[in-house]
Every structure is written in C-alpha cells, then in structure tokens.
Amino acid sequence: MTLRPLKRIYKDVTTGSVDGLPTVLLDGRPLLTPAKSTVVLPNQAMACAIADEWREQGDEVQLQDMPITQLAVSAIDRVSPARDDVVAQIAGFGETDLLCYRSEQADLADRQAELWQPMLDWASDALKAPLLTVSGIMPAQQREDSVVALRSAVDGHNDMELAALHSITTATGSLILALAVSAGKIDAESAWELSQLDETWQAERWGVDIEATERAGHLRQELIAATRFLNLCRETSVAGN
C-alpha cells in the first residue's frame, strides 16, 4: 500500500528527551503519532535514525520511505494498546509455520529438508518448541506445549520489538525464521532466502514472474528494515542531542 505524501511544514529536525527518554523534535516540538501520542523511544540510536528519515524528506513527506518511523509509530499506536492480541496474532503463525510444509515434489522436498530442518531443530532445542512437518497443504496439528512455548518466546519481546517481529513474521511467513532473526541465529538476508525457497525453485523451472518479483522485493525491504529496527531497539545509547 502506498501512503499518501504529506506537505513538509517543518524546517529543523533534532533529537531531545521527554521525561528522560529520547524523542525527535520537529522545529523544537516532539514528534507525535497519528493518535497524538508523543514518540518516546528506547534509546538515542533510534531517535537519531528516525530524525535522519525526517531530515531526508523534501517538500513532501513520503511516509513509505520512513520505515523506522512507521515501526515506532506502530508500536506506540497499535501494539501497546492491544499487546495481548498482537502477541496472539504473531504466535499464531507458529501453528502453520512455512517451514513445516514440505513439497510433494521430491527434489524441492529434499532442498526444504536440507535448509529448513536446521531451523526447526533450533526451535526445538532453543525454544523448546518441536514442530511437526507434513507433505502437501493439509494442516499439521502442532503439540500444545510447542504452541505455548512459541507464544512465550513472542511475549518475551517488548512492544517496540513486537512491532519488528510482526513485520519479519509476515514478510517471511514464518514465526521460526522471525524468532531466529531476533535471537541472532540468522541475519535478514538468510531469513529472506529461506522464506523464498519455494519461489526460487519455481523460478528455476518456469522462469521469473515479474510481478511476483516486484512484490517480493517490497517484502524483502520490509524484512531488512524491520531487522534494523529490531537491532536499534537493543542499542544501549542514552538520551542526548
């Protein structure tokens, strides 16, 4: 979805603090969310990243080019007021995780087993969440203790981190890949390549679908931006100008 540009009505972009926590100032006034909440941030590194996005705008503010701002606003306006619902939505991906569904084509299934199974083994060991795999599209009934363990892993993220985790999960179609990125097990590019295993196999045999490639490019950028945001959430810098 393309967001409607806004006319730029500010000149100066700086960082400051509200109640000792970093924020971004537009002409000396704290940045507000669409719900009129002050954008209070976890650290100075994120404040600087968001300030850079606002400085880089021209005569119009192109919100689609400001992913760090968008994720911070989403955390404040959408995640915080409905945290339990967001946790449940993200955790729900684990019950039908992409990595659990194997192709009935033998060569693709072999590739999936080789590249996806290590991620499921990691989830079993690190998250105590063993997941069943199936061939075809019939849903697998996952163990209740695994579902509970995955929800606990998701719930262990703060509101800002949840905004990023949600974006990574939806971009890849896999909660396991998102949690692996969050844990530092894999990076964004590895997560993307693993999530696109089926599409890569199809392109090798039938050729590239231009429209699908364009859509995938947008998802990849969302994944990269969300991973950067997640890393910014964990910076330890303090408030300052």
Results as ranks from 00 to 15, higher is better:
E114H: 15
Q44D: 09
T227L: 02
A203T: 15
T227M: 05
R111S: 13
E235P: 00
L108A: 06
H157T: 01
A153H: 03
L219F: 13
V208D: 09
L127Q: 01
A109Q: 05
A82K: 13
P130Y: 14
D187V: 02
A88S: 11
L6N: 09
D59Y: 08
Q117D: 15
E144T: 10
A35T: 03
Q142H: 07
L41E: 02
V39P: 09
A226H: 06
A203R: 13
V208T: 12
D27T: 04
R111I: 08
I186D: 05
M138T: 14
M1R: 07
L25F: 03
L25S: 04
D198S: 09
D85W: 13
T15D: 00
L71V: 10
A153S: 14
C100D: 14
T236I: 12
G94V: 06
W54I: 14
A153N: 12
E211V: 14
P67L: 02
L71N: 11
T69Y: 15
V61P: 03
L32I: 01
D84C: 08
S74K: 12
L162R: 13
H218K: 10
D110W: 07
A226K: 03
S190A: 13
A180V: 03
M66F: 09
A180R: 08
A225P: 14
L21K: 15
L219W: 08
D159R: 08
L177G: 01
K7H: 08
R234S: 05
R4H: 11
I76M: 02
A72I: 08
V148W: 00
D159M: 02
D84Y: 06
M119W: 00
R8W: 11
E95K: 12
H218P: 00
A51I: 06
M138H: 04
L63I: 15
V148E: 02
L194C: 06
A153G: 04
D85G: 11
K11A: 02
V79Y: 07
D187R: 02
H218W: 14
